[in-house]
Design a protein around this nucleic acid. Structure first.
Lengths: 128, 128
DNA sequence: ACAACACCTGAATAGATATTCAGACTTATA
DNA sequence: TATAAGTCTGAATATCTATTCAGGTGTTGT
């Protein structure tokens, strides 16, 4: 190995000492999604990463429903639905309204349905 | 499939016997995302539901990178990066090209970046 | 050919997630 | 008021996921 007096140092664990393309690394680094933001996004995607939650959202995309009917529609236990709604609520993807002893849920806004339709389309393209 | 007969029995665990609004249930049911499709979508969302994978994708959104540099950019171990790339590869979100002993990765297509930018924007709105 | 390097893979551990069960709370009805 | 219905919540279990570690494959350069 040539005795390169490279003052590499660097605080990042990189491939050995000589980065393949240090320029690229330096160039890309600031463009990379910051960790904090990445976590936010991951959290949001995580909400949509469950089949049952997607089905719940797709049901609510049509009209508001109470927990009970929702459970019937998506064929889940009411407790499970309630747990999931709690999750969706915490991220303000759905809103609710109490009427008597029922609680009616609906999508918080239509951005959710837009987004989810976005992916649905992409999937259709993808699954050729 | 289940013919969803009267409000009696049925295979779905509903609120007692009398659905709050059977009409709504019947109306919504066919609109609900089918389980199979929901799983596909959830799988795709799941790929995007990890901060490190998002960071990897955001890095590749700028330009192609080898595993080594990629690891440096996102500050992860190379093995961890390799594992994640394997996941992303399996869903064809990234493609790769071997050149010598390096393997260069890039986004498979720009739909991915479009989608991910979509959510980034929504998040910006959301976090007012 | 040999050694070093880039990358991949499998097993193992730690952490997160979803469902179920049991019970609590709230509201309508007898 | 007492009972039943709808919903919510917490604990427990099972499952999945991500990272690390150790070792393997294939390529480059001496």
């Amino acid at each position: 190995m040539s005795s390169l007096a490279r003052s590499d140092s660097a605080d990042a664990p990189v491939c050995d000492q000589h980065l393949v393309d240090l320029e690229h690394v330096r160039q890309v680094q600031p463009e990379v999604l910051p960790i904090e933001k990445a976590q936010q996004m991951a959290e949001l995607f995580g909400l949509l990463a469950d089949p049952n939650r997607l089905r719940i959202l797709s049901a609510l995309a049509n009209q508001e429903l109470c927990v009970c009917d929702l459970a019937a529609v998506v064929k889940m236990g009411e407790s499970a639905v309630s747990h999931q709604l709690r999750v969706l609520r915490s991220m303000r993807l759905v809103s609710y309204e109490k009427r008597g002893r029922m609680v009616y849920y609906r999508l918080a806004d239509n951005r959710v349905s837009i987004l989810y339709r976005e992916v649905a389309d992409q999937l259709s393209d993808r699954e050729s």
